[in-house]
Design a protein around this nucleic acid. Structure first.
Lengths: 349, 349
DNA sequence: TTGTAGGCGTTATCAA
DNA sequence: TTGATAACGCCTACAA
């Protein structure tokens, strides 16, 4: 049923003036009602909303941005091609941004040069904030250029090159390592091995330190030869595991892997040696990639707190774009252990 | 009157008027030079560009969009969470869009409801075109609503529910299947098995038809029991392969897998049976996911033509947004075989 | 080819 | 609280 008037529900050719006329108020009032500045629930409010609905009206984003200096857009720079962590972060960023009334403008960068370009380009587009998921081997900003005009708040996600001039949200790798060890200890592991990534490869780099210095559970590290560094590949995990279990006299009963690929290799080696996971040896990995669900048994993995990081990034950006204060906090969040088949649940006795 | 002394390189507070004053021309001329309407390489051109550079000026996107009705933004709707094909497509779409001077606005959707919302929301934001990478089990549009006002060209990528009212770009699965078989035939395979996804699961659904009806090489399909349907999991591939090779009398020497996970399971089974890949049996899979590089040997895989699809999508969108004609072409592109360790290269004799 | 001037649709200002 | 009006920064007829 339509109202008695002549609604003209044509495509979005309607402007705020049409709504004002139909609602018999001024354009200013329409603007206030529709932007939430006018909170009353009276007749004016109803008339305006009714008119807007009838005309199928929605505000023109460009005009709004031009006038109010708020574009309603958050920029996101991610690695090209988009890797798994970036896709997870973006998947969490988008709903969080939407909930704050922001859209996402996505740019990708592969090199430092591209990163600089994209950052500049986005900032010039009047975005309300910028989130950078830095590609490997890239710094932000490369030079503290005119890029970072005081206008746009910037926040870096992941990476470990965060300059003191840039807000940063990352993973608490120390807590991650501790959680992994505690998880194994709780399941009665007595001797733990650690297959670390090479030290320069980021995410778990200082996890090695945490591993070797974790106070309460140091006694779990029996053999220095069980701490290895190397590539994040299936083959590396396979080779290291074979080597570790060559000497039947002394073998670990818990293995922490720098990522899921390494863990997959470990699993293959153990399977070949007829060592049963998790009964004889337990395995924990970092990253919780899709791989973790594919293996047999599935991998207990330390999952980066993507959702928490995304929400915090949005929150910070909103905060900084409103207030005048501009701090550059460096925040880390502890990841969560996803318990799966490769570790044994502790039985309550 | 100090041309080079006091350039005011402050943040982007400068407008086209400042540039015009500094270059001693009118704002119209500045607009024309900077938007490429004025092609001459004369003194005026140089003065304008010099002034713009000096003032660190760049056009205000909002004002430009408001006035010219062209926002310079393409909308992209992708599944939430972003899956591998979507991340590949986006990784190709972004540079292609950038090259055309467009930015990407990214929205994610998980349900039909969300898809409709995001499509509507993006179209209302005055985007120049919309690319939809449809989530599973979603249709576009759900109802031919006011969403598809004649204003914004829309194109769907992947999925197989493309309505005749929507432009669509997909994969030529028939060609894909043919290429896989031809690849095996060229490497002297004589009997081929096909581990198909369940028929409703999209991508390779009609590949089964192509498999069974491929004219020239039908003789390669020896045994109907070698064509199976099932889940796209490692275990399924493992189980099917074990079953297939239980009877030593008659076994295939080429296996085509519906995706990389199935292929991984096949590889594991063959390895366990001490059947050497590719010497005794060759394996080809669909999808070319990161998994393909992780296996031992690495997987020869049929790679969807992400780049081609992305470029064609951008091209079509640009075309439709300029011309008045609005066709709804349905296009498919053949994928490319990435030759890796799981198939044997044909030796030239 | 160049300049002038009028809007694009909205929000902010200010007076009522 | 509401309404009239002036920007916001740019593009584009139209005139010179």
């Amino acid at each position: 049923m339509k109202p008695s008037k002549d609604p003209q529900p044509r495509s979005a050719n309607n402007s705020i003036v049409d709504v004002a006329v139909l609602a018999r108020v001024s354009v200013a009032t329409v603007s206030r009602v529709l932007s939430g500045q006018r909170d009353k629930n009276d007749d004016v409010d109803r008339r305006v909303r009714q008119a807007a609905a009838t005309l199928n009206y929605s505000v023109n984003a460009a005009a709004k941005a031009l006038r109010s200096k708020v574009s309603g857009v958050l920029g996101v720079v991610a690695p090209k091609p988009i890797d798994f962590p970036a896709s997870q972060l973006i998947s969490e960023l988008e709903p969080a941004a939407k909930k704050a009334g922001k859209n996402l403008a996505l740019a990708l960068a592969e090199t430092q040069q591209e990163l600089d370009d994209k950052v500049r380009s986005l900032i010039l587009r009047d975005i309300d904030g910028l989130i950078v998921i830095a590609p490997q081997n890239c710094r932000l900003p490369s030079t503290k250029d005119a890029t970072n005009s005081p206008g746009t708040p910037i926040i870096q996600l992941l990476g470990h090159n965060a300059s003191p001039q840039v807000s940063w949200i990352g993973i608490d790798t120390t807590a991650a390592m501790r959680a992994a060890m505690q998880h194994l200890a709780d399941a009665n592991a007595t001797s733990i091995a650690f297959l670390s990534p090479t030290l320069d490869s980021g995410m778990v780099s200082d996890a090695l330190v945490a591993f070797q210095s974790s106070d309460q559970i140091t006694e779990l590290i029996r053999n220095p030869a069980w701490t290895t560094c190397g590539a994040c590949t299936i083959r590396r995990g396979y080779d290291d595991a074979l080597r570790m279990f060559a000497d039947k006299d002394e073998t670990p009963d818990g293995i922490i892997c720098g990522n899921d690929q390494i863990a997959l290799g470990v699993l293959q080696a153990l399977n070949q040696l007829h060592i049963v996971v998790p009964d004889q040896v337990m395995v924990v990995s970092f990253g919780d990639s899709p791989l973790a669900l594919m293996s047999e048994p599935s991998l207990t993995s330390v999952c980066p707190p993507y959702r928490t990081m995304a929400h915090e990034a949005i929150r910070l950006l909103l905060l900084e774009s409103e207030g005048t204060r501009r701090l550059y906090p460096h925040t880390t969040f502890p990841p969560q252990i996803i318990d799966r088949g490769s570790t044994r649940k502790l039985m309550h006795v």
